[in-house]
Design a binder for these strands. Structure first.
Lengths: 251, 251
DNA sequence: TAGTGGTCTAGACCACGTC
DNA sequence: ACGTGGTCTAGACCACTAC
């Protein structure tokens, strides 16, 4: 089945990791095909003369990589690559810009205290007694080109007034942590496509009705109380999301 | 620190899972704050009179949940919730439709063998000798409304001709598995926004230049050789992607 | 009944960070 | 030197599956 000498017990590389890589390679090469059972934990354990717990650690890595699945009482089997689960990480949105080494910066267009209207109170699930919110308008630009425009709202708390015109952390969770007494604990984001409005178009320097990414974000504190809301528009001709799926090699 | 009687060793619920939930709750409630160290493995182990390996299993769950991070020689610390990593699962795209219980189906508009042009050969990184590709055009509709339009290409292999007008698995990996001898192993997807063309608009029954999601997909076999390519257009007014991030409660 | 994976123990030695 | 997390052992008992 497998050569014994492919595991080096005296190596600085953990045994479980060597075994994980060994099995992973077997599956990638097709020696073990989807649906087939891999050797039992006891077989591997006795074959390599290593503890069963170490074998289980290696298999756990395979499971979390989605390459095998275990069934109690039956065995452990090679999985079929699932290629329908697309995962886009919005890191891409700004990380890509950073990685390209572009000169990007966030500019604060406006920051003020506003009176709450009903729509805003509804978003924050608040009653009539909450009258004030913080309001921010920011623009992200790179190489003197404006890429995205965002408006943000947070609940106003007197104890932490707006002192700085420059924003250290312009993200919505950052603003909440800096300017309010709430602690951001979770966030919900909804991505849609839209045709940009005239206002957005003029700010971003693109044509009206150009296609854009539209991301609405709600930030919650530890009690799942909404403490921040934002709406961002990203130029459709400057952003894209990329997803890799399946058992691609990482080496 | 923690009440002993909150771990029931005789329960059918695994000890590591009870301990995981216990620590998770402490962190959520704020008893343990971001940056603070959680009790050492030895402390927890002796406090509850359970094995250190069991404690490690519980902590491993916390680590993979992103709630704590371990540092060798220093300790294990509560993490700060990261709210900048947005993860959109494209499952949403069709799963949502399924979950709503809508009547959705995929319709095959066209399926034929086409001659390769240079552009297509370039996409598949193939030479002049590859002359033929399979070409599919499909539409996804729900409740008699067309939602998305997709064109797909795969390398033609004579041994598996197109026999059926109905498609069992209309996904690109599915078509490749059914109609070619290649085995889909990984996929790359790129999501963009665009203004739809007149052809797309007429097929989907929307106005020209309406904003749409555009997803290009390349499917690879185990040698990372491209074996399929598709371009799909999704109605911008019918689709959205939702992302939850941070330490939201799941109960 | 036999074999599988799931959980758990009570130790051990190591690499690393702190003092 | 000491305490931390990282790895590993050689067993054990259990729940589940298949025969």
């Amino acid at each position: 089945m497998i050569q014994t000498d492919m595991i080096d017990k005296s190596s600085v590389i953990p045994i479980y990791y060597q075994l994980f890589k060994l099995l992973e390679e077997q599956i990638r090469r097709g020696d073990l095909k989807p649906g087939e059972a891999i050797p039992t934990e006891h077989e591997i354990s006795s074959h390599f003369e290593i503890s069963r717990m170490t074998v289980r650690r290696a298999i756990a890595e395979l499971v979390s990589a989605g390459m095998v699945y275990a069934q109690q009482g039956r065995g452990t089997f090679v999985a079929t690559p699932k290629l329908d689960n697309i995962v886009f990480e919005l890191n891409d949105f700004n990380q890509e810009i950073k990685q390209r080494g572009l000169n990007y910066k966030t500019t604060l267009l406006e920051a003020k205290i506003i009176r709450a209207d009903k729509e805003l109170r509804d978003k924050f699930e608040l009653g009539e007694d909450y009258k004030r919110f913080l309001y921010f308008r920011t623009v992200l630009s790179a190489e003197d080109e404006r890429l995205s425009y965002e408006v943000k709202y947070t609940i106003y708390s007197k104890s932490k007034p707006i002192l700085e015109t420059e924003l250290k952390d312009p993200s919505l969770p950052g603003l909440i942590a800096t300017h309010t007494e709430y602690v951001p604990m979770s966030a919900k984001k909804v991505l849609q496509v839209a045709a940009c409005t005239e206002e957005e178009a003029s700010i971003l320097g693109i044509a009206s009705n150009s296609p854009v990414f539209l991301i609405e974000q709600t930030v919650y504190d530890q009690d799942l109380k909404p403490v921040g809301w934002s709406k961002a528009v990203y130029r459709g001709d400057r952003y894209k999301l990329t997803s890799y799926d399946g058992w691609y090699k990482k080496d």
